[in-house]
């Protein structure tokens, strides 16, 4: 393996990484919001909303991710919605991750005891105060481990977006291989870079988990 070649390619890879992190970061942020709202709708008791969210989750889970990406990039323009490569990527990754975050948050909501609902009601707390100040923090804590799983998968799944020509980390590697045939150097490099990203995220997740578990440490 030629490490000098890797050093030479590093600036290119870093530009790719920047795109990977931007797309993943946006998708993670948006999917957490959609996940929380979707899970709330799914358990709202309002049937049309529940069916809509369930249908969405089932559709995303039941179709190949690559097909979803192509659907957005190649399919939507014929329906009159033309997104750039970047925003197609963000949209595809967000839609995919959201379905899983909805399920993660739904699990979190189920873990919140009914007792606190009674307590808040008897104290006269408004429903949305109760949702925001009591249910959300408790559900987020319960959902965190599975949610971190999806967050890590979101970063890794950004690699698929090279298929629609998004110049992210994997695209850069594959592109250089097409010219220089240094496959082992490039794939080794991006694997290490992906691993480092995932380790950093996991570390962050563990720290957050530790913080949120503090009130429960005595149990």
């Amino acid at each position: 393996m030629d490490f000098n070649y890797i050093l030479d390619a590093l600036p290119d890879l870093m530009r790719g990484l920047k795109v990977t992190l931007t797309v993943s970061g946006l998708a993670i942020l948006l999917s957490c919001i959609v996940g929380a709202v979707g899970a709330a709708l799914r358990t709202s008791g309002f049937k049309p909303a529940e069916y809509l969210v369930t249908g969405y989750v089932e559709f995303i889970r039941g179709t190949p991710y690559l097909v979803q990406i192509f659907f957005i990039f190649y399919g939507l323009p014929s329906l009159g919605l033309r997104l750039s490569v970047f925003w197609s990527g963000v949209a595809a990754l967000t839609l995919w991750a959201s379905a899983f975050q909805i399920e993660n948050f739904r699990g979190g909501l189920a873990a919140v005891s009914h007792g606190v609902r009674d307590a808040s009601a008897s104290l006269g707390l408004k429903r949305w105060h109760h949702a925001l100040l009591v249910v959300f923090p408790l559900a987020a804590r319960a959902a965190l481990p599975s949610s971190m799983n999806t967050i890590v998968a979101t970063v890794k799944n950004s690699a698929y977006l090279q298929a629609i020509g998004l110049v992210e980390l994997t695209f850069v590697a594959v592109d250089r291989i097409a010219y220089d045939f240094r496959a082992i150097e490039m794939f080794f490099s991006i694997c290490v870079i992906y691993l480092l990203c995932v380790f950093a995220l996991s570390g962050l997740g563990h720290a957050l988990e530790h913080r949120l578990n503090r009130p429960f440490a005595g149990r």
Binding site: G115, V116, D118, A119, S122, L138, R141, L212, P215
Partner: peptide, 13 residues
């Protein structure tokens, strides 16, 4: 009205 429950129902967080 204030209410006290069998299982306390304190906010654990």
């Amino acid at each position: 009205i204030g209410m006290v429950f069998q299982s306390f129902n304190l906010y654990p967080h």
